[in-house]
Design a binder for these strands. Sequence first.
DNA 1: TGCTAAAACGGAGTTAGTCTCCGTATCTGT
DNA 2: ACAGATACGGAGACTAACTCCGTTTTAGCA
Lengths: 193, 193
Amino acid sequence: MPTRKQTSVRKPRSDAQRNRERILEVAKEAFTRSGANTSLDDIARDAGVGPGTLYRHFPTREELLEAVYRTEMEKLASAEQKFAEELPPIEALRAWLLLFVDYIAAKQLIAPALNALVGDPKKVFEASYARIHEALRALVKRAIKSGDIRKDLDPIDLLRALIGVANVATSPDWQQSARRLVDILITGSRPAK
Amino acid sequence: MPTRKQTSVRKPRSDAQRNRERILEVAKEAFTRSGANTSLDDIARDAGVGPGTLYRHFPTREELLEAVYRTEMEKLASAEQKFAEELPPIEALRAWLLLFVDYIAAKQLIAPALNALVGDPKKVFEASYARIHEALRALVKRAIKSGDIRKDLDPIDLLRALIGVANVATSPDWQQSARRLVDILITGSRPAK
DNA sequence: TGCTAAAACGGAGTTAGTCTCCGTATCTGT
DNA sequence: ACAGATACGGAGACTAACTCCGTTTTAGCA
């Protein structure tokens, strides 16, 4: 028996793969530009495929949204390692939180994702959330070990606060607000004494 | 000349008033129950009016959402005075922040509002946001004066963090997370020394 | 109280987006 | 290069959004 994975997956056909990526790319731009309610048929057309093809790859709007979102979040999560290697714990944490802010500032990707949230919150976040959470937890863990952060801090709390800031991005200075908030959060997370 | 307001407002017809309230009430429940994408025609039917009537009162989905949202936020904002009178500054602030959490926990009203956000963020929040912000600012101001909070704290930062928490309400314990966050925020907002 | 103009109603009908179905085209392995 | 499997695409059914206008209701006045 070959050691290769034999779990059903027969093979992905090359044109299918191409189309999938094409759709994802167009969708990302469309959602970012016009919000999460953009016509899916339009996205299909812009990607040069029929509606049927789009729906075969992503049966629901939410699934497409999630796929786009997950792809982007993956990039963010992978930045954790770099910071962890280059900076002292507390600074690595701060840097990553700030990157998080910059990232969603540039991409505005949180809005579409949130939109989908209304339908079924868990689905959309489940996968990417886990990945992001893992990255953040690693950073917090190191900062706890070095004594910069108090033991009982739940990393999710920080994450939630930050994601929130992005959503309430009504005023133009929201990004600065987010930066100040990072400081508040870190200060508030220090050991009691 | 009579001192009464004469600014255009001719008169609101009683049936119009009734219908408006009826729609608002049904809409609030519908959005809370099924998310912000509920069929507006359905809402109209449940309220016992025709689609035309609903659209006359609230030309767009966003406007209906905003009206519902604003009504609820008004209630929250008005709680500020009570706390300010009954509690010491820092505790009044804490209490109000916690009420904020409880409130959106119960009503889940933030989700629909956010959904609308994608279309045009400012519009939806503008009015109610101002009201809430005002309440929070008053509380923070008092807490600064009493020396419990550092001078340069921007109240909006706290608000943003909290709203965010509600949005990322994926896990069942999000409410506890929010409560911990309130502590973090308050601690992080204390004077430097 | 009865009358009238203004205000508001309501639902049929138009428009637009979602999603499916299936005949046709393309790919992969032999 | 052939066969079978896989994927494509777009016509069309369905559903919700939103409008338009003939009918009904209301407020104010004589």
